[in-house]
Every structure is written in structure tokens, then in C-alpha cells.
């Protein structure tokens, strides 16, 4: 059997360098990564990349930094499987393979000029941070900005310093909640859905952007609809196992849609009738 080298194969990762790492919680670690030649990733917030550890495998990871950050990008990776376990052992100076960015992100052009309500549960903050920082870096192009963050306990909170920075801004409203507080916690306790009714918003010009664990979507979307936000102004990012990123391998398919190419960001009206989407 002949073996031929393929130029520009969609399966060939770019060898990229880890510039910096930061342990965030017991299970999450932040990686700053540069593509070869200092090229920008040129992603849209909400898109993902396929990260390779050679000899171990590849995993889809959403980009956590804003495209306004040039020259390098950031991934916040939870240790849950074989590849992420191996990734957690890597440090600055080590190489990883990068393919992508893949998929459709949050279309910032559609969001421009509108009010934004961000709802992030647990790890949902990771892709949402990319959009939030993009909005903050282009703050006058958007209307009011409301951020709701929720997680299990205060020590699971990610990007604490940055969240504090957002909180200090006069052009951002931010609310945090945890399922279970500890003595030092001063914020809300309870489900993230409980924060939504109290928000004053203009439904016609508000976009709700929701990212979180599968169970969260149904409840949050119900609250947003109760606020009269139109279905097509509710954006969600769905988690599936995108193995190839090319709309071929089938693992991330939701009915007729490939999460890796048609998503991972969808407007609610597009997926509300898809069985098994939410």
C-alpha cells in the first residue's frame, strides 16, 4: 500500500506552543497558546478548536479569549478524560496541536447595537468569556450588558479576578449565584434561573446568550421566554463530542445538524423542535 503525504489536510494540526498556564481550580487549568509564526487564530467568540496531544488524542475545546486579543489565545480546560488529563500535565514551553477554529460562534454583527443578557452556568463561562470580553473591548457598540453567573460552590468559580473587573465597571451589571455557599460568600445562593425575573429589560432589543450544562438550558430559556425575549434572540451553545470538526464523523450530530459545523451556537428557534437538542 502506497502512502502519500497530503498537503493542507483538514486533519493536520498546527504545532502550537503553550506560552503560559494557570491552575484555576482543582479540575480547571488555563492555557495561553500561540499558533506557529505568531499567527492569530482569528476566531469568532463561541467557536472551538481541536487540541491534540500526540500519542494520546484530540479533544474539542471552546476558545475562551476574545478575538480582540491578538497573537495568542486561551483555552480553559477541565480534566474529564484521557486527552484533557494529558493536557493538564503540560506546561509553558510544551507543544500541542491545534486545528480550527471550527463552527459557528456568536454572531457579533447581529448582536451589535442590542442589549445583552449573558447567562453562564458552571463551565459555560468559558466560551462566554470570549464574547463578554469582546463586547467589553467594543463596549460602545452594544446596549446594556447584564451578566448572570452561576456555579455549584464559590470555589468552582472561574476567572475570579476578571469577574471582579467586570463587576467594577459602570457599563456592566453583574450578578453571581452559587448552589451552595461557604461562610465567605457574599453573593446570591440558589439557582441561576431565580436571578432572571428581577432583571429589567426591553425584550425587543435584548439578546439572551445562554451557556451551561445541558440541564440548565430548559429552565433558563423558559425564564427568558417569560420575559418575552423572542426565540431567535436567544442564543445557546450546545455541548457535543465533536471528533473531527468537519461535519463528517457523526458524533456531534443533532438530527440533521452537525454541532461542529452548524453550531455549536444556535438560536433557540432553530433547535426548539429538534428532539434531543436540549
Amino acid at each position: 500500500m502506497k502512502k502519500i503525504a497530503i498537503r493542507d489536510s483538514e486533519y493536520e494540526p498546527k504545532k502550537s506552543r503553550i506560552l503560559r498556564t494557570k491552575r484555576m481550580t482543582a479540575t480547571e487549568k488555563l492555557f495561553e497558546i500561540a499558533l506557529p509564526g505568531g499567527k492569530s487564530l482569528d476566531h469568532e467568540p463561541g467557536q472551538f478548536v481541536e487540541v491534540s496531544v500526540f500519542g494520546v488524542g484530540e479533544a474539542p475545546i471552546s476558545v475562551s479569549s476574545s478575538p480582540t486579543k491578538r497573537g495568542s489565545f486561551e483555552l480553559c480546560i477541565r480534566k474529564v478524560g484521557r486527552v484533557t488529563e494529558a493536557l493538564h500535565r503540560l506546561e509553558a514551553g510544551d507543544d500541542v496541536g491545534i486545528r480550527g477554529p471550527f463552527g459557528k460562534g456568536f454572531s457579533v454583527r447581529i448582536l451589535e447595537g442590542n442589549d445583552l443578557l449573558f447567562v453562564a452556568g458552571g463551565l459555560g463561562i468559558v466560551p462566554l468569556r470570549s464574547l463578554i470580553n469582546y463586547v467589553i473591548d467594543n463596549r460602545r457598540d452594544f446596549g446594556t450588558v447584564n451578566i448572570l453567573l452561576g456555579c455549584k460552590t464559590p470555589k468552582d468559580m472561574l476567572f475570579n479576578e476578571e469577574v471582579d473587573e467586570w463587576n467594577k465597571r459602570l457599563d456592566v451589571k453583574l450578578n453571581c449565584t452559587v448552589d451552595k455557599a461557604d461562610p465567605a460568600w457574599k453573593g446570591n445562593v440558589g439557582l441561576i434561573t431565580s436571578l432572571i425575573p428581577g432583571i429589567n429589560l426591553d425584550p425587543d432589543r435584548t439578546f439572551g446568550v445562554v451557556v451551561g450544562p445541558p440541564i440548565m438550558y430548559r429552565f433558563v430559556i423558559k425564564e427568558l421566554l417569560a420575559k418575552k425575549i423572542p426565540e431567535r434572540q436567544i442564543l445557546v451553545s450546545l455541548e457535543r463530542h465533536m471528533k473531527c470538526g468537519l461535519g463528517k464523523c457523526g458524533h456531534c450530530q443533532i438530527e440533521n445538524l452537525y454541532c461542529c459545523q452548524d453550531g455549536p451556537v444556535f438560536t433557540y428557534d432553530k433547535i426548539k423542535n429538534l428532539k434531543g437538542a436540549l
Binding site: 502506497k2 502512502k3 502519500i4 497530503i6 493536520e12 504545532k15 500526540f54
Partner: peptide, 9 residues
């Protein structure tokens, strides 16, 4: 870490 995309045919 050198790599090459290949096809066997």
C-alpha cells in the same frame, strides 16, 4: 514533534 498528514492508497 514532527508530523505529516498521509493517505494510504
Amino acid at each position: 514533534q514532527s508530523m505529516e498528514a498521509v493517505v494510504e492508497c
